[in-house]
Nucleic acid binder design. Structure first.
Length: 327
DNA sequence: CATCAGGGCCCTG
DNA sequence: CAGGGCCCTGAT
């Protein structure tokens, strides 16, 4: 049994997101597979984070309302944290959570849209949210490829167990991601032993790209979408599907809508054309519909439709959807 | 028991 | 640009 690293130091900070901000729908995405680096319950999310090499435990807690949002952030660490470290950390957390995102233009533009209007009414203040660094997100993207949800969860768990750090804070035990250099001594063969299959090669080569500084997350943030896309596609094992998610979630490209995978195609066909998911509408037709209706906010608009569906699924049986989700 | 596709991507021809 | 192969798993 692995001994967890006990995080003893704790401090609290208040965060003020741009209004409107809907806490639960932002901090929990029911369509994401569960991972050992976080836990959620209504009003609270626990999340581990490695920042500048230091493992941290975070608890973000809702203390406000949609229109007067307030978040209490508690940070656990092994030892005391310096102010410069904290300042950088908070900037990063604000960025990753999209706390600064001003939704007013989006809300105004689509509030009377027959399909989006009611969803904005219901989910006003929701935004995409990503807690992970680009490197970490890439690992998720790789284990997600070409498999069923259960196996993705298992692969992630094995990787955390082998390379991650188990943290204990606030009564929780959660794994913290490793840094790329922690994996440096690992060969493709070592990774294959962990039953990630051919993904071993991708994991190893993405690691090299980070260690060799062929890609730099912070640097990429200030670049345009197409430059970001090219940089991501250069990574071995990362193709258009993964890049689409990354441009939206990691780089906040709210208009990104370039690629639709087969299972998404079926879901969009049902949601936007109300046809049998198996009689899927051609991807080109879906893309042009999104362009017509949502240009400028395609990713964000679809996010509302998508999340609404998966929230519904948490309390309602949706037979056609169940058939499309391979657990 | 065998076969096959899966919340992709690479490589080959 | 189409199509085979890839680790493994669960569905059929």
């Amino acid at each position: 049994m692995t001994q967890p690293l006990i995080l003893q130091q704790r401090q609290s900070i208040e965060l003020l997101p741009a209004s409107p901000f809907r806490f639960d729908a932002t901090t929990h995405k029911p369509d994401h597979f569960p991972a050992a680096d976080n836990e959620w319950q209504p009003g609270i999310r626990w999340q581990t984070m490695r920042w500048q090499g230091t493992p941290l435990g975070l608890r973000i807690e809702n203390q406000g309302t949609v229109d007067e949002p307030r978040i209490s952030l508690a940070i656990w660490s092994e030892g005391p944290l310096r102010q410069v470290f904290l300042d950088g950390l908070l900037d990063e957390i604000r960025y990753r959570h999209g706390l600064h995102l001003d939704l007013s233009e989006f809300n105004q533009r689509f509030q009377h849209d027959p399909q989006l209007g009611p969803l904005i009414e219901r989910w006003r203040g929701m935004r995409p949210c990503n807690y992970n660094s680009l490197y970490e997100y890439l690992i998720f993207a790789i284990v997600l490829q070409n498999t069923i949800v259960r196996r993705s969860v298992d692969m992630m768990q094995v990787l955390f167990g082998r390379y991650g750090t188990l943290l204990s804070f606030d009564g929780k035990q959660l794994y913290c991601f490793w840094e790329p250099r922690t994996m440096l001594g690992t060969t493709e063969e070592d990774l294959r032993q962990l039953k990630v299959g051919y993904r071993a090669k991708s994991i190893r080569r993405v690691l090299d790209a980070f260690v060799n500084k062929e890609i730099d997350e912070v640097d990429l943030r200030s670049k345009g979408t197409e430059e970001q896309r090219r940089a991501l596609l250069r990574l071995y094992g990362i193709g258009p599907a993964s890049v689409g998610y990354i441009l939206g979630d990691v780089f906040h490209q709210w208009d990104e809508m370039n690629h639709i995978s087969p299972w998404e195609q079926k879901i969009y066909s049902k949601l936007f054309f109300d046809v049998d998911p198996e009689a899927a509408v051609p991807v080109a037709q879906l893309l042009s519909l999104f362009k017509e209706r949502f240009l400028g906010y395609r990713m964000l608009a679809v996010h509302y439709v998508w999340e609404d569906l998966f929230w519904r699924r948490t309390h309602e049986h949706i037979p056609w959807l169940e058939k499309l989700i391979r657990r």
